[in-house]
Write a protein that binds this DNA or RNA. Sequence first.
DNA 1: TCCTACAATGGACATTGTCTAAGTCAAGCC
DNA 2: GGCTTGACTTAGACAATGTCCATTGTAGGA
Lengths: 138, 138
Amino acid sequence: MSDLLERLRGRGWRMTAQRRVVAEVLDGDHVHLTADEVHARAVERLPEISRATVYNTLGELVTLGEVLEVSTDRRAKRYDPNAHRPHHHLVCAQCGAIRDVHPSGDPLADLPATERFGFTISDVEVTYRGVCPNCASA
Amino acid sequence: MSDLLERLRGRGWRMTAQRRVVAEVLDGDHVHLTADEVHARAVERLPEISRATVYNTLGELVTLGEVLEVSTDRRAKRYDPNAHRPHHHLVCAQCGAIRDVHPSGDPLADLPATERFGFTISDVEVTYRGVCPNCASA
DNA sequence: TCCTACAATGGACATTGTCTAAGTCAAGCC
DNA sequence: GGCTTGACTTAGACAATGTCCATTGTAGGA
């Protein structure tokens, strides 16, 4: 039983086969699946699960703060279960591979008040783009 | 005549009424229109322009490096004509307003070699999220 | 002016995501 | 263990955004 499932149960989340499967699919490091990929993997374990349920469940997990939405490309949103440790992303421009990274600085501190236009800033998202070793050698 | 049009002509871009209108719509600071918004404004000047042409032209401008694609939300891509001065974006989480900003630090320098996983990094995109003054006072 | 390659058109199609009405079921209660 | 009930799931229609293609039009050079 994963920590995620334990936490969800502890928060009064009604447990169903569908939700369990979605939560199980989203487990591990450097996991960044699209909703469709989550659905595809969920179907392997629970063939009758519907797309709508996967979307609903992912949305709930995001609301609960257990999963992060990531948009590294302009296609589908991706879901990152590593929500409890702040991090940014490194994306291969060719194959789309994604790694979690932890830069040393604080980008928030780098934005002077004169460049904030009166906004109250709550969050910063940094995406590094480049070419991964696999694609570079190909 | 805008600088953009001059530059494009100088690069041998075949000039048509449609392309001129699209380039004219994309002009100014803090401009971040979606493809559909570009189309809507282009139609005001050239009623018969088609969506496909707008998409094609935007794609060409991006390829030429004259316009940047920005994805501050997960809906439509936005097009930013301010491609010749590197900058990042500040987005209002409520109304979607976007401002160009220029942070002081260099996020690239903040990513140690051990966090690069062998990638050759070429680009960094930083998005600040928060609430704009208008939305905060509402 | 005429040609020709390149551009524009419009409509079909693809992808991603949302919504709804109806059926199903987990969990509490007896 | 068997009800009850409200939350959950489902299938499919719909919406938003973007792409593709065959046909038609035209900018710019000869």
